[in-house]
């Protein structure tokens, strides 16, 4: 599997570390909304098909990125910086 790193280009997946679901928004620092934290930390869908997930290019530029991947076929889609939001 080749992962497009927005900084380094397409690289082998072995250079990356998988880091879970990226579809949930982290509650802002200091938020005391326990339900929101609970949802963010513990509740994940386990979809068959399209998935938005975090990967970190640990053996490359060390940047975190969001990647679209099909969990059934491992077909990889777009990627972007977490700080920039989905390109659409």
């Amino acid at each position: 599997m080749l992962i497009p790193c927005p900084h380094c280009g397409e690289r082998d997946y072995r250079e990356f570390r998988y880091a879970g679901d990226a579809s949930k928004a982290r509650p802002p620092l200091g938020s005391t909304d326990i339900a929101a934290w609970h949802d963010y930390v513990f509740l994940f869908d386990n979809p068959k098909g399209g998935h938005r997930e975090y990967w970190q290019h640990v053996l490359g530029c060390r940047r975190w990125l969001v990647l679209e991947r099909d969990t059934a076929t491992n077909v990889v889609g777009r990627s972007w910086w977490p700080s920039e939001g989905s390109p659409g």
Binding site: R17, A19, R26, L29, Y54, Q56, V58, R62, R63, W64, W81, P82, S83
Partner: peptide, 17 residues
């Protein structure tokens, strides 16, 4: 060590930009 390093990078790059 590696886990903490990744965690710091995660927070700086995704949450506390």
């Amino acid at each position: 060590a590696a886990e903490v390093m990744s965690r710091l990078e995660f927070l700086l790059q995704t949450a506390w930009t």
